[in-house]
Each structure stands twice: as structure tokens, then as C-alpha cells.
Design a protein around this nucleic acid. Structure first.
Lengths: 147, 147
DNA sequence: TCCTAGATCGGAAATATTCCTATTTCCTGC
DNA sequence: GCAGGAAATAGGAATATTTCCGATCTAGGA
């Protein structure tokens, strides 16, 4: 999945392609290509984008993330650290997270409680499921040592 | 599970039993006994507690919730509505939630992705799991109609 | 009853997020 | 290529949530 693919995908939706949005996308994409991707907060994204596009505002980051989320391009992860975190969602690798409550480091869980999702739908057939989250919290090897 | 049981449980832990803590407990317990319990925000708990104990401060609510959480008496639910929400956790009925992103109404999911939790532990054997969350987001029958 | 570690209050501070308005800009149709 | 208009942006103000801090109070053990 590369920039041009996503841009093409965005153009189809009719959304305007501003340089700000492309820079946010770029930052998220770089995050997604790292070996150990870490979901980013709005503030973190702001800092990274500003390195290349200094004038961007925090409001634009939030609006862009909201827009991308509506387009299922971005998903939200709750680290319980007081802010929302986001990462690029590439369908082919839907996943969940394991988060250290001390250092905030996240690891990926490459599997999904699909059966639970199905049971939820059975249980509440009239509910329109839009999204779901499965997150495991605890202490990583490094942090549990320093108790 | 009644007040006296919980109080007994608290006393065992050595934690001080202040009237403020008991009032917070009372509010959470009332919430837990409702047919359709809704996890409460700190502000909501504050309002309810103040009806009986007007002098209590928001800080105390937050501190009390943090204390109860450490004792596994309370758990946190993320509604994606900008604040943390809490509910009394009665072991015998561990559950997860289905949340409407429009009206904020929550329903319970009386089952748990236990297999995923086990797989997570297998995947990361050195991670000390403390907690987990499974939440389904979407639109309830009422809200999906008003699109 | 006294003592003291621990808890509380109230307000200030720190964070995170959204709102607002004037201005700018992307895109469509010519 | 150019103009028009709807959509997006910047920047700062406003709001909301959560935490911090110092002074004071108190639950519970001795």
C-alpha cells in the first residue's frame, strides 16, 4: 500500500486533496511502515507534519483525522493515557493492540475476536455495527521489572 | 452483591473507609443494580453523590475511582465521547459493551474474547496482562433511523 | 483520647479537543 | 488557463476533562 494508492482511493470519494491532508497521510503511512508501528496522538502527528509543513494547525490535524476516520482510512486506539491515538488502517491487516500502561508502548495482536463480534450482532440484531476494539492492557517485560 | 459485602472487602485491603468513598460506592452500586446499567463519567458520579453529600470534590471522585480501580472494584469503559467512564465490576458477571456512537447508550455483551486473551498471552509471554477491553461501536436501532 | 498517615477540598494548572471567523484554496465548468 | 463557489485552513479563543497542590481534616490504630 503506497501513497499513490491511497490518494487514488481518496480522489474517488470526492474529498479535496489538500497538501495538509497529504502530509498527515504521509506521516501516518510512515508510521504504518515501521516494524513496530505505534498509534500516534494528534499532537505527535502535528509535530511530525510541522517538520515538513510548518504552518499546519492542530485543528486541521483533528479535522483531517475525523475525515479519514469516516472514510475508514484511519482507526482509533485507546491507550488510556489521556488522549486519542490514531493509525492508518490497511484492511488487509486488521489488528488490535496490547498496551503497556506504564511506558505506553504498543504491540500488535494480529487476530480479532470475530466470533464475539458475530455473537454481538446476534444478540442485538438491530444494532448497526460500525467498528470494534479489542485491547489488552498490562505491563511489558521492561516495566514489570521496575515495580 | 451488596454494600456490606463490598465494604467488608474494602476493609480487608486496609484502605480507609471515608464517607466520600462510601457515597461513590453507593452511586456505582445503584448504577450496577439497574436493569440497563450505564457506565458513568466522573462528572455524572459527582452530580449523583452531591445530592446526598454536597461537599464532595471532583478530585475526590477521580482519586476514589483510581483507588477502586487498583482494587479491581471498578473498571473503565471507553465510549469515545471524550471522557472516561466507570462501572462497578462484580467478578461474577464480567462483561463488555456495545456502544451507540450517536446517543451514547450502552448495552452489555455477556461474553468475553477469552480465547483472544489467551492467544495474546501466548504471543507475548513476558507481558503481564492486567486488564482488557472489547467494545463494539455503531448505531442503535433508534439512531440509525435518524440518519 | 491522641497521633499521624492518609484523605479531602477548592481552586489553579495542565491537557486535550472543539469552535469560530476571516481568509485561502481546490476543483469544476467554461 | 481562468473564474466562481464550496470546502478547507490558520490561529486563537473557548470548552472540557483530568491532575496538581497546599492547607486542612479525619479514620482508625495505639
Amino acid at each position: 500500500m503506497f501513497m499513490c494508492d491511497i490518494v487514488a482511493r481518496l480522489k474517488k470519494t470526492g474529498i479535496r486533496l489538500t497538501p495538509q491532508r497529504q502530509e498527515v497521510l504521509q506521516v501516518l503511512l510512515e508510521g504504518a511502515l515501521l516494524e513496530e508501528r505505534q498509534p500516534l496522538s494528534a499532537e505527535e502527528i502535528l509535530q511530525k507534519v510541522r517538520q515538513r509543513y510548518p504552518g499546519i494547525s492542530l485543528d486541521t490535524i483533528y479535522r483531517t483525522l475525523a475525515t479519514f476516520k469516516k472514510l475508514d482510512l484511519v482507526c482509533e486506539v485507546n491507550f488510556r493515557d489521556g488522549c486519542r491515538r490514531f493509525e492508518l488502517m490497511l484492511q488487509e491487516e486488521h489488528h488490535h493492540h496490547l498496551v503497556c500502561l506504564k511506558c505506553g508502548h504498543a504491540r500488535e495482536l494480529p487476530f480479532c475476536p470475530a466470533d464475539c463480534l458475530a455473537r454481538a450482532q446476534e444478540h442485538y440484531p438491530d444494532f448497526e455495527i460500525a467498528d470494534h476494539a479489542f485491547t489488552v492492557y498490562g505491563y511489558c517485560e521492561k516495566c514489570r521489572k521496575s515495580y
